[in-house]
Amino acid sequence: MDWMHREAARARMRVLVKRLLRKYGYPPDLQDAAVQKVLQQAEALSADCAA
């Protein structure tokens, strides 16, 4: 996937995830860990689809 290779695409994805977390009342102090987890899951899913 394109976002795996470009930092700008990764940054955009982080912004979108943070917006969703804020929208649904996720605790602010846990957001960074949640964003990292979502990015890891997306990378794993993308690797599985590419294989």
Rank of each mutant, 00 (worst) to 15 (best):
E7Y: 09
L45A: 15
Q31D: 08
A34V: 05
A51T: 14
V17L: 03
Q40D: 11
V35N: 07
A44C: 07
L45G: 14
L45R: 10
Q40M: 05
E7L: 12
R19G: 08
R6S: 04
L39M: 15
Q31P: 01
L30H: 14
D2S: 06
P28T: 06
L39F: 04
R10D: 13
V17P: 09
Q40C: 02
G25K: 05
L21M: 00
C49E: 15
A9N: 02
M1V: 15
A47N: 06
A9R: 06
Q36I: 02
Y26E: 08
A9Q: 10
K37P: 02
Q41A: 13
Q36N: 11
R10I: 03
D2T: 09
A34Q: 15
Q36T: 00
V35H: 06
V15I: 01
A9I: 04
D32R: 11
P28A: 14
E43H: 11
R12L: 14
V17S: 04
L45H: 13
D2G: 10
R10P: 00
K18E: 13
Y24W: 10
W3M: 04
L16W: 10
V15Q: 15
R14K: 13
K23N: 02
P27V: 09
D48P: 00
L21V: 07
R14H: 03
A50K: 12
P27M: 10
R10Q: 14
Y24T: 07
E43K: 10
R12N: 12
W3L: 01
E7M: 09
A42Q: 11
Q36A: 05
L20N: 02
P27S: 07
H5Q: 06
A42M: 13
A11D: 02
Q31R: 13
A8S: 07
Q40F: 00
V17A: 05
D2L: 07
R10S: 01
K23A: 12
V15H: 09
A42E: 09
